[in-house]
Nucleic acid binder design. Structure first.
Length: 835
DNA sequence: CTAGGGTTAG
């Protein structure tokens, strides 16, 4: 190693204890010594000492020396060095070069307002900007997205005749792209007579960063084919990051093949971008290969891997990447900590989370608001709200993300009221705030409220929804079965030009099928490109729910033909279709094929479907055999299927057996008691029925009240069994009386109360679906369809009541219960009276 | 002088 005495100028880079070797105080060679020494100044203290020595030499008024010192201070780019440079600048006669140095320093260290103010002062001072000033100024505007300032500078560029300068043009392209004005950027780009690699890179990057990944990649290939310009590593990084956003492995591989063959130098930044690209395409193997090849000691590369692992939900892998990195002696930075804290949040590992918090504090990362937000998120998700709020209160610059984190945290813990209160009072909202709140309400089954919030988002705040927003709202709408709203949502998506990708499309298919409009559901499904298994499942479910079992099975076969690998969920759809349609043979075949052909292990729910299928077809013994032969322990869902089948088939003994099993496995499940008492009632075994009722009472179980929903002119009306509070009640009662005079014979076995016959008749006539039906008849136009959604299974009396109504009033009635749809018209129901 | 990856909330 060189000693201090042999290489004097190095003294500033390595030590501040002996700032100046004695021979440099000689006045005869000031310029060379200053230039050489300045280049080696790497801290503000060294610069100040340097200035001190200039003063000693009487050189502190030397314009050339001070200019160079200012330039070097600006290059360092720290707040302190910039302040120091500014002081020197203010004391001296600012040359154009000095202005440029400072504007550049401000811009590159993020003090963009300062940069622009100085730009302005420069002109006021009568120093005209030159071809160097414009790129610096535009760069500041780009960073701050200061569109207005940038446009003014553009005007100045034209006026002062700098518009032909290549560097200025490149800066304009960059500025316009960063501000999202891609049309303007492209205009400048297109009008350039000569373009260099930076011009192309700026344009490509502009497209990529503003969400036009496809255009970015296309432009790259255009550059390759049409121009005499070769890409460099910066160009490649831009293209690679655009590919990452495309999530299209084929294009990624094409680009990677290019990288390997082009001879472009592969640097650290590029490897990070490549790893990120492969992981965004979920090709972790290739990413790991690159990781091995280029070294795990690269902090940025590890950060890219960790953050992607977190995104994929592989939190353990994320933590392991970081710990391997630490083992090799690389210290995690604040970006590493974001992944580490997020992992703790997902894993609900508050212990590790706390130690991350400690590391954050020891390294001063707590001044970064995104680190604090991650910590708040972690503590909220780990149910340490007090700690979360301590950080929240301590934070000086809370952003909208901070507030959103709190709202999401409350929702995660099921505290909708607190979430709402925070949401209502937070100082600023963005689309994520709305999505969080709406999604939370849907998650808590507060569908009406979710739709209400969605409405006020548009009407009062004028905020446009995103695909994610619509997916939540579609789910709420599907639960409510509100077809008019569903149609409006679909219209909204088209009108606002919201991209109808597979995920959104699937949720719309589901929505329409749950609203009893299978035709629209299928037309949306047909229009979808790149259908995945979930999309097919939604379509199959739509057909199954509406009683089109054959079509559902056709869809299932078509999906297999197209080479998609079925999962457990799609088998539920297919088997449900068979069950509802009475397709016993197909159902058996599909069930058999699950394991043998497709390698999908049947779960409880699939056995439940089979029990249901066999039971409905009257094959109760076979269903029982299947249960006994199960490799899994039969759960309450399976016994409930059997119980349901027993009710339909009137098998009292087996029903009692199944109900007994359920009461052991899931004592809180009220439905089984109700079903069993139904079975007894139908068989006329009133004593047994009374026993069931009594045991329910003893256990403090109550049948949840039947509730039916109906939408009339956009408003949801809710009817609860026996509830007479609806304002139109007199008219509804008159309607009910009118119908009963048409010859409806009540089936009193549906009343599970121990009351006299007259009382039973009355209670039966006040079932929620009857109230809703009567209300539907009186408040909608003749001939229109009446759509009702019920929370429980429809009772047999209401079912025959609906059939009568459909015939006598010439109305289609679409009744959705908690199990399936009943499309009722002209006295017939799509369920063939089996449900 | 101009262009670049990994960054918290749903």
């Amino acid at each position: 190693m060189a000693t201090l005495s042999t290489v004097p100028p190095l003294v500033f880079a390595t030590s501040t204890s002996r700032p100046f070797p004695p021979h440099q105080t000689h006045r005869n060679k000031p310029t060379t010594t200053t230039t050489n020494s300045l280049k080696n100044c790497k801290t503000i203290d060294e610069l100040k000492l340097f200035h001190h020595s200039l003063a000693k030499q009487g050189l502190d008024n030397d314009v050339s020396a001070i200019t160079k010192l200012v330039a070097r201070s600006c290059e360092l780019g720290t707040r302190e060095s910039l302040t120091f440079a500014r002081k020197l600048f203010d004391f001296s006669h600012g040359s154009r070069f000095m202005y440029n140095s400072l504007i550049r320093g401000y811009a590159s260290s993020g003090l963009c307002e300062e940069a622009l103010l100085l730009f302005l002062r420069m002109m006021i001072d009568g120093v005209s900007p030159d071809k160097y000033t414009f790129p610096f100024g535009l760069s500041a505007c780009a960073k701050r997205r200061a569109a207005r300032d940038g446009v003014q500078i553009h005007g100045l560029v034209v006026k002062m005749d700098y518009a032909k300068d290549l560097f200025v043009q490149n800066s304009l392209v960059h500025f316009y792209s960063e501000c999202g004005e891609l049309v303007c950027a492209r205009k400048v780009f297109d009008e350039m007579p000569l373009r260099n690699v930076v011009s192309w890179t700026s344009m490509i990057c502009g497209y990529g960063r503003r969400g036009y990944a496809k255009e970015a990649v296309d432009l790259f290939f255009e550059m390759m084919s049409s121009e005499d310009v070769r890409p460099n590593s910066v160009t490649m990084v831009c293209v690679i990051s655009a590919c990452a956003k495309l999530e299209d492995l084929e294009i990624c591989e094409k680009v990677y093949a290019f990288v390997s063959s082009s001879g472009v130098e592969v640097n650290d930044v590029m490897v990070s971008a490549l790893v990120d690209m492969y992981m965004k395409c979920n090709d972790n193997d290739t990413a790991k290969q690159l990781f091995q090849q280029y070294g795990a000691r690269n902090l940025d590369l590890c950060n890219a891997m960790a953050s992607n692992y977190v995104r994929q939900g592989l939190t353990k892998e994320a933590l392991s990447v970081l710990s391997v990195m630490m083992d090799s002696g690389v210290k995690p930075d604040r970006i590493s900590m974001l992944s580490a804290i997020a992992s703790c949040s997902v894993l609900k590992n508050v212990l590790l989370g706390k130690s991350c918090h400690g590391y954050v504090l020891r390294n001063g990362f707590e001044s970064w608001d995104n680190v604090c937000n991650a910590l708040i998120d972690m503590y909220m998700k780990c149910q340490k709200q007090e700690t979360a709020f301590k950080i929240f209160d301590w934070m000086l610059n809370k952003t909208v993300v901070t507030w959103n984190t709190i709202v999401a945290g409350y929702i995660e813990n099921g505290d909708v009221d607190a979430a709402w209160e925070t949401f209502r009072t937070m100082p600023e909202k963005n689309i994520v705030s709305w999505n969080t709140m709406i999604g939370g309400l849907v998650q808590e089954s507060l569908f009406e409220e979710a739709i209400e919030v969605f409405r006020s988002m548009q009407s009062q705040e004028g905020v446009d929804a995103e695909g994610v927003t619509v997916m939540s709202i579609a789910s709420a709408c599907g639960h409510l079965g509100a077809l008019d709203l569903a149609k409006w949502i679909y219209y909204y998506v088209e009108k606002k030009g919201i991209q109808l990708d597979v995920r959104l499309g699937t949720s719309l298919v589901d929505m329409f099928s749950r609203c009893g409009d299978p035709e629209t559901a299928m037309s949306i499904f047909d229009s979808l490109a790149n259908r995945d298994v979930s999309a097919w499942t939604a379509a199959i479910r739509a057909m199954a729910l509406s009683g089109n079992a054959e079509q559902a099975i056709e869809l299932f076969d078509e999906m297999i033909e197209q080479g998609l690998k079925p999962d457990g969920v799609v088998f539920v759809g297919a088997l449900t279709a068979c069950s509802h349609g009475g397709l016993v043979q197909q159902g058996k075949e599909i069930f058999e094929s699950m394991q043998k052909v497709h390698g999908v292990c049947p779960e409880e729910v699939h056995y439940g479907c089979m029990v249901d299928l066999l039971g409905r077809a009257g094959l109760l013994e076979e269903a029982m055999q299947l249960i006994k032969s199960m490799p899994l322990e039969p759960n309450d869902v399976i016994w409930n299927s059997l119980l349901g089948a027993c009710r339909v088939q009137g098998n009292v003994e087996m029903a009692a057996y199944a109900a007994e099993k359920i009461q052991v496995l899931a004592p809180e499940r009220t439905g089984s008691y109700v079903l069993l008492s139904n079975v007894y009632a139908s068989a006329g075994r009133w004593n047994d029925m009374a026993k069931v009722r009594l045991s329910m009472k003893e256990k403090g179980l109550r049948k949840p009240p039947g509730t039916s929903l109906i939408q009339i002119r956009g408003k949801t009306h809710e009817f609860t069994s026996g509830d007479e509070s609806h304002p139109e009640m007199p008219k509804i009662e008159a309607m009910l009386d009118e119908i009963s005079e048409l010859g409806h014979v009540p089936d009193l076995s549906n009343v599970l109360m121990d009351v006299d016959e007259q009382e039973k008749r009355f209670m039966l006539s006040r079932h929620s679906e009857k109230l809703a039906m009567a209300f539907g008849l009186i408040s909608s136009n003749k001939g229109t369809t009446v759509r009702i959604v019920k929370n429980l299974r429809v009772c047999s009396d209401c079912h025959s009541f609906a059939k009568l109504v459909s015939k006598m009033y010439n109305r289609e009635i679409i009744l959705r219960d908690n199990n399936r749809f009943h499309f009722i018209s002209q006295g017939k129901c799509s369920c063939n009276d089996l449900w």
